[in-house]
């Protein structure tokens, strides 16, 4: 039997993790923590460790979310076992074989994984989501130590609800080094505003201090999945593409016809964004008659 920790809401990534576990064969127990349990990674992991022993689990899995990765790392540390994060496949055996994501998905790693139970987190979209029944609800084990409980969510700051959130935007207009300055983002903001979209940027831009980190799309920034991603003056480094590969369509605007971003683009405009982007904004106004 295999145990899968699922996020309380039973979201799509949790459904994918359950489907992944079913693919290993045997029974699958989807478990979550009761809504009233404040998140406490080590205490939750202790609970999962005890459950795995009690049920004789052959694998303990979680979706490769922040919390899934954190919980499984605690489980692994407690058991003294290896854990493979962000797996796209897992084949039990001795040793088990895994394929996992590296570099935010820019590279795949084929690896051998020891250990019993097998511990892994499931990379998003490795398998299709399958609905599952009501998960078992867990309460934190009384055996959780004071040290386990020392890290526990004790408060919450709600996000200020201003503007379109980058992660959820239908349109993202994003600027890279080619924008040239903080002021240069005026044309990007204008187009994003006309399209009801969000402004994004590359890591080069946040490192230069032109935009806040909350605007960064990339491996170390936000992952976006808009209907269209408009990349302006972005060369297409792997660090950036790791954040925008979820876009349905990509329009790249770049003066360098050889820029690597064009290899991932659906539409290309060869040109200077400082000329092209204002022309697009003007055209939208013209079409709308405003």
């Amino acid at each position: 039997m295999n145990i899968v920790w699922v996020d309380g809401a039973g979201d799509e990534l949790s459904q994918q993790a359950v489907a992944f576990a079913r693919g290993l064969g045997g029974d699958v127990a989807a478990v979550r923590f009761a809504a009233g349990e404040a998140y406490s990674p080590a205490a939750w992991a202790q609970t999962l460790v005890e459950l795995a022993a009690e049920r004789g689990a052959s694998a303990v899995l979680a979706p490769a979310t922040d919390r899934g990765n954190e919980l499984l790392a605690h489980v692994a540390a407690k058991l003294g076992q290896p854990v493979a994060a962000n797996c796209t496949s897992l084949t039990p055996g001795s040793p088990a074989r895994v394929v996992r994501l590296r570099w935010g998905g820019s590279l795949l790693e084929e690896a051998a994984l020891d250990g019993s139970p097998l511990l892994a987190t499931v990379a998003p979209h490795s398998v299709a989501a399958e609905p599952f029944g009501e998960p078992e609800t867990l309460a934190v084990t009384p055996a959780a130590s004071e040290l386990d409980l020392a890290v526990r969510v004790s408060g919450r700051i709600e996000a200020a609800g201003a503007g379109v959130s980058l992660a959820d935007a239908e349109v993202v207009v994003s600027g890279g080094r080619g924008v040239g300055s903080a002021e240069g983002f005026g044309v990007i903001e204008e187009l994003a505003g006309l399209l009801g979209g969000a402004v994004g940027c590359s890591r080069a831009v946040t490192s230069a201090g032109w935009r806040p980190h909350s605007d960064q799309v990339g491996q170390t920034g936000t992952k976006v999945s808009p209907e269209i991603y408009i990349a302006c003056g972005i060369s297409g480094a792997t660090q950036h593409m790791a954040g925008c590969k979820g876009a349905k369509r990509l329009l790249a605007i770049n003066p360098d016809g050889e820029a690597s971003i064009f290899a991932s683009a659906d539409y290309a405009v060869i040109g200077d964004l400082h000329e092209v982007v204002p022309a697009i904004s003007a055209e939208i106004r013209k079409v709308r008659g405003t």
């Binding site: 076992q81 290896p82 854990v83 493979a84 040793p95 394929v99 590296r102 998905g105 820019s106 590279l107 795949l108 790693e109 084929e110 690896a111 051998a112 994984l113 020891d114 250990g115 590969k245 329009l251 790249a252 064009f262 290899a263 991932s264 683009a265 659906d266 539409y267 290309a268 405009v269 060869i270």
Partner: peptide
Amino acid sequence: RLRMERLVVPEGPGKQAEIL
């Protein structure tokens, strides 16, 4: 105990951008 055996560059989207 987690032994990397080899790395693989995933296949790109294989897109051919339409030049607008």
